[in-house]
Simulated scan of single mutants.
Amino acid sequence: MTNDEQMRRLDPGALKALAHPLRVRIFDLLSAHGPQTASSLAAMLGETSGSTSYHLRTLSAHDLIREVEGRGTARERWWELPQGRIDIPGPSEAMSPANRAAAQIVSSEFFRLRHETLMSWVNRPDSDVPEGWKDTGLIATTLLEVTSTQMEDLKAELMTVIDRAVERYRGQTGPDVRRVSMRTELFDLPASGPVLADAADTSVEES
């Protein structure tokens, strides 16, 4: 990971600035679709450009987004996400009540949008699938029996795969190139009894 890709953990000010459903949606659209203007975002969201302009300025004030250099005019500015990753803290007992409330808003809206995007893909009719893209996606759920140390190791292996893909395909353009969402989920399940040493692996995979 290079210096400009270092993980940025949101401070309380940035977290509170993002803690608005419309700002989370704007942030998510910039991530999914690349640079946008207040007008283009307004069209996507069904809002006025005045409203999106206000929220863009708020996000910009906390360096959550930035203006695209050399593009646009004083009347029509283009906005993008800075390069690199951000770490959005989840609600924690160590936070102040205000920060915990902000974290709850941000995490809830991000996961709601994530699920909405996934279900749109799952329910997409074949007629909307671009040529050559049918059956290219993957939804897989596998249950494992591991220790916390093994889970940390597995997380590191998955992140290595992700980092390698980011480096390999960064900035790729062309008529056949589409933006895709690559998701990795790894979490422990609530305890519901002892784990049997000889428990069978349960795997559900859907392409």
Rank of each mutant, 00 (worst) to 15 (best):
A74V: 11
A197G: 09
N123Y: 07
L64D: 00
R183Y: 01
R8K: 14
D176A: 07
Q6G: 03
R170Y: 09
Q36F: 03
A42V: 07
S96F: 02
M151L: 11
D153V: 15
F187T: 03
S192T: 07
W133K: 04
R112Q: 08
V24L: 04
S60A: 14
A140E: 15
R75G: 10
R179Q: 06
H55V: 02
L56R: 02
Q104K: 13
K155Q: 15
R66T: 12
E131S: 11
T184H: 14
M7A: 12
P125N: 10
Q83N: 13
W121F: 08
M151H: 06
E152L: 13
R57M: 06
T202F: 12
P12F: 12
F187G: 10
L143F: 14
T2M: 08
A74F: 05
S127I: 00
T147L: 12
E131H: 13
A38V: 05
S39L: 15
H62K: 10
I88K: 01
G50D: 15
K134L: 05
S203F: 06
L56N: 01
F187S: 11
S40E: 06
Y169N: 08
V122R: 09
V180D: 13
D4N: 14
M44A: 15
I88D: 12
R23I: 10
K16F: 00
E93V: 11
I139N: 10
A42Q: 03
T117H: 07
I88W: 02
A103P: 03
G171P: 07
D188S: 15
E76M: 12
P89A: 10
V24G: 01
G137P: 05
S207Y: 04
F110W: 07
R183K: 08
S96W: 09
A38W: 04
M95G: 03
K155S: 15
H20P: 05
M151N: 08
S181T: 13
G137S: 13
I162Q: 13
V180P: 00
I65R: 01
G193L: 08
T160M: 13
V177M: 09
M95Y: 04
R168Y: 02
T37Q: 04
S107P: 00
L186A: 05
P194D: 08
M44Y: 07
D28A: 07
A32F: 04
H55K: 06
A197V: 06
G193A: 09
M151T: 13
K134E: 04
G84P: 01
K134S: 02
T136A: 05
E157C: 03
A17E: 08
A197L: 05
A74L: 14
Q83Y: 08
E93H: 05
H62N: 11
F110M: 08
H33M: 04
G171V: 02
S92Y: 07
P175W: 06
V161S: 11
E205M: 04
R25N: 02
D188H: 04
T48M: 01
G90A: 15
L22T: 12
L118E: 09
T160S: 14
D126R: 00
T52R: 03
S39P: 02
E167G: 01
F27A: 05
A43K: 13
G193M: 03
L10H: 03
K134H: 04
H62R: 10
Q104Y: 09
A42M: 10
P190Q: 11
E167A: 11
